[in-house]
Amino acid sequence: MPMSKDEIFDKVRATLVDALSVDDDDVRADATVMGDLGAESIDFLDIVFRLEKTFGIKIPQEELMPRDILQNPDYVVDKKLNAAGLAALKKAMPHADLTNFEKSPEIDRLAEVFTVGAIVKFIEAKLASK
């Protein structure tokens, strides 16, 4: 039987609580992993290893955070994504809600789209395709 969204959320929450030493209550679906939960870039590596173990999946780094798009000069102009870059990002990150980011697509703001909900959605899709 496939795991329900609530079960996935609970496991993601437990992972983030362990990895970032935050309280259960802080890990809400709309919390941003870096802004609200205080994760640093190096924590992502830890979180990815823990999620792989918890869910028995492989998470290639490029799938969660498509760096190649952010470094592609065809897509990034003055530290902002252009229309083509935004389209590529949407395709590469179907798990993230880019509504707010789109309004001012500065790459420095991309951290804001990494919410707990986005991770849950990412895992859900991964498990479904397993």
């Binding site: 590596l45 830890d46 990815v48 290893f49 823990r50 792989e52 173990k53 290639p60 780094q61």
Partner: peptide, 11 residues
């Protein structure tokens, strides 16, 4: 090593 050494590193 937990699991395996991946392209990014290991736990």
């Amino acid at each position: 090593v937990d699991g395996e050494v991946t392209a990014s590193g290991a736990s």
